[in-house]
Computed example of a mutant assay.
Amino acid sequence: MSDHDDVGVHTFPLERADALEDPSRYRFCSREELLADLDPDPDATVADLGSGTGFYARDVSPFVRAVYAVDVQGGMHALFRERGVPENVEFVTASVGSLPVADDSLDGAFSTMTHHEYADPSSFAELARALRPGARLVTVDWSADGRGDDGPPLEDRFGSDEAAAQLEDSGFDIVTVRDRPETFVVVAVR
């Protein structure tokens, strides 16, 4: 296992937030892949964990009743607002480890390139509390097995097996694990 003592400290720099709107991000996770893995019901309430400027929240919003755009940086929400906010998106300025939602209130959650920023047992326990039984958690993140040409430094990343084990240790059942050249996908169910 990697040494990640400072996990949760890292956030994406606001001054580089324009990069979060780059359509080339779809080479790491397309809207279609994310929606297929999340498999949301049209009446679902889901959370985008580390929503940033809303790149993926805007993609998911037409397919669900509500999206909580969760980001610890209020400045990211301001940038999201500048780009336009779908009516069914609600901003939540909080860490993944302290979600201000009721127990079992989320029908799903997804994390695109942010797992390494919040990966700790308290955050996973909080997700298990907030997600209803049977809800899906889709995690797409930079792989420790990647080359490191994009994304955070390799030492700040997890491998897919490590990320899956973190979720299993917190009571999630793993549905699928996929390794790709620079990223991984873990789909888990509460």
Results as ranks from 00 to 15, higher is better:
V96N: 07
D41G: 05
L49D: 06
L20A: 10
G97Y: 05
G52N: 08
A36S: 09
R65I: 04
A17E: 12
T112M: 09
G52P: 04
A47R: 05
G84E: 09
S143A: 14
P133C: 05
R83M: 04
A44Y: 00
D5T: 14
A78L: 11
V92P: 01
V189K: 10
V70S: 04
H10K: 11
R25I: 11
D150I: 07
L99V: 03
A188W: 01
E182L: 02
V187M: 11
V67M: 02
V60F: 02
R31L: 12
V177A: 11
L49V: 03
L34C: 10
M113K: 04
A36L: 12
T139W: 01
V46P: 00
A57G: 12
D48V: 12
V85S: 00
S170K: 09
E21R: 15
P100K: 07
M113H: 13
D149N: 09
S2P: 13
D37T: 11
L127C: 03
G50C: 09
D161G: 15
D37Q: 15
V101I: 05
G74V: 15
R132K: 13
G151T: 05
G75P: 08
W142P: 02
D5F: 06
R81H: 08
F80C: 06
D150C: 05
R129M: 06
A144C: 08
D161T: 14
P153Q: 11
V177T: 15
D22S: 14
D18K: 14
L34Y: 03
F110G: 12
T114E: 06
F28Y: 15
R16Q: 14
E90T: 15
P181C: 06
T45N: 00
R31K: 14
A188N: 07
Y68N: 01
L14V: 15
D103L: 00
V189H: 00
R58W: 01
R83Q: 13
F158K: 10
E32Y: 06
D59W: 03
D39A: 15
D71M: 13
H77V: 12
A17Y: 11
D103N: 11
L38K: 04
V70R: 08
R136L: 06
S160T: 01
V138D: 03
F184L: 09
Y68I: 00
S61M: 00
A164N: 01
G97A: 13
S95F: 03
R58G: 03
S51N: 00
Y68L: 12
S160M: 02
E32N: 05
I174F: 09
E162K: 11
L154E: 11
E32F: 09
V177K: 15
C29P: 03
P100C: 00
F55V: 06
R129G: 08
T45G: 03
D161N: 12
M113I: 13
L137D: 05
P42Q: 06
D141M: 06
E82C: 04
V185R: 15
S123A: 15
P152C: 07
D6R: 10
D120I: 01
R31V: 15
L167S: 08
R190L: 02
S51P: 01
L106F: 03
D107L: 01
V96S: 02
V60T: 07
N88G: 10
H77L: 10
D169H: 06
L20S: 10
E90N: 04
D37V: 09
P152M: 12
P121I: 06
P13F: 06
M76D: 01
D179G: 04
P152W: 13
D43T: 15
